[in-house]
Design a protein around this nucleic acid. Structure first.
Lengths: 183, 183
DNA sequence: CAAATAAGTCAACATGACTGACATAACCGC
DNA sequence: GCGGTTATGTCAGTCATGTTGACTTATTTG
């Protein structure tokens, strides 16, 4: 099939035709920073894993979780708001939202002033699920924060917030409604 | 289609049939912790977004990025190692790995001692791409860390590391080869 | 030599994302 | 009140990435 080269010896033998062939030479990115990049990957992988397992049991996926979560936290959210938060297309949202409504997790009601709007809220069933998932995730965060020490919470939040794209920070700050970022 | 209830007034009007209907009452999860959960979502969303855009131009996806990254950082990695790191199935990996090999980003060579193994390394082309992507991500991390202040780096790393599942921490620590976590 | 291991492969499928076009309904300004 | 804009929903098709389970091949190891 694909051609496999002969066994190599030592420091990747014949492969060092050019300087760039050795990733540990030349313009190596700062090792500390790279490790943070990798930790972010592993942390997020395991952060979502726990909730995914619960969701799988009831036939929902991560996409449903995100909708559920933000509607839980922002009752009366409009579809357009959700599109802006999740940064996905109308189609992608429509599919999962329909399933959540059909399965009795989310209810839609017309906007009071603007009747074109569909204000989204959770049913009791939806609220219970959202709580269950958020409990899993906050427990993991709490454990990690206490592991990292008392000062970690503020700095971690600052770091994560600064990782958000500049254009979205205002929106995120409003959404998370955290004392530290409130106006 | 789906039934839409009539407009609601005030604090989600008739919806408060039970105590659980109001997510801001009762056993509300700690607001600080929830905000960290949400920040993690937004931070990761934007963390991956930049690299995704570059990858899209050349017809690759996030899955390719992950393979590229870990082979870049761990030249000579075996397929089995990669499966353990990424926690995906052999099939999923096979597809993206084949594309990376076919497109000249990755080379495979037989293991020196065990010739069943395929040691993975990057070509110059692969190394260049990996560097370009890692530069984007470390730049974002560096900006966020400086934003969060001098003490943020250590604590952020501690936090992220503690977010990793207990069973994987040893493996992750070995992989990231960070002074702080080295044996 | 037999069993275990590393890798590759086939076939089928689920999820969640995308695009682009089009259909309603409702609001708002003129 | 008409026309443009907005909020939402929908149709139809595609793509990327993940899954399962079974099977093959080459190789190492007991």
């Amino acid at each position: 099939m694909t051609d496999i080269t002969a066994p190599t010896l030592g420091p990747r033998g014949a492969a060092k035709s050019e300087a760039a062939a050795d990733p540990h030479s030349g313009m190596r990115p700062d090792a500390h920073l790279v490790s943070v990049v990798e930790l972010l990957f592993f942390a997020y992988r395991d952060f979502t894993g726990e909730a995914d397992a619960v969701l799988e049991e009831i036939g929902l996926g991560r996409a449903h979780h995100r909708v559920l979560h933000f509607v839980f936290r922002n009752p009366g959210l409009r579809v357009a708001d959700l599109l802006g938060i999740l940064k996905i297309t109308k189609q992608s949202l429509a599919r999962v939202l329909k399933q959540l409504v059909d399965n009795g997790y989310v209810t839609q009601s017309m906007g009071e002033r603007d009747r074109r709007e569909r204000r989204l809220t959770l049913t009791d069933k939806g609220t219970a699920l959202a709580r269950r998932l958020i409990a899993l995730q906050t427990a993991r965060v709490a454990q990690a924060l206490s592991s990292a020490g008392a000062k970690a919470e503020g700095l971690t939040r600052d770091f994560l917030f600064a990782m958000v794209g500049v254009d979205d920070r205002a929106g995120v700050a409003a959404l998370i409604r955290d004392p530290e970022f409130a106006a």
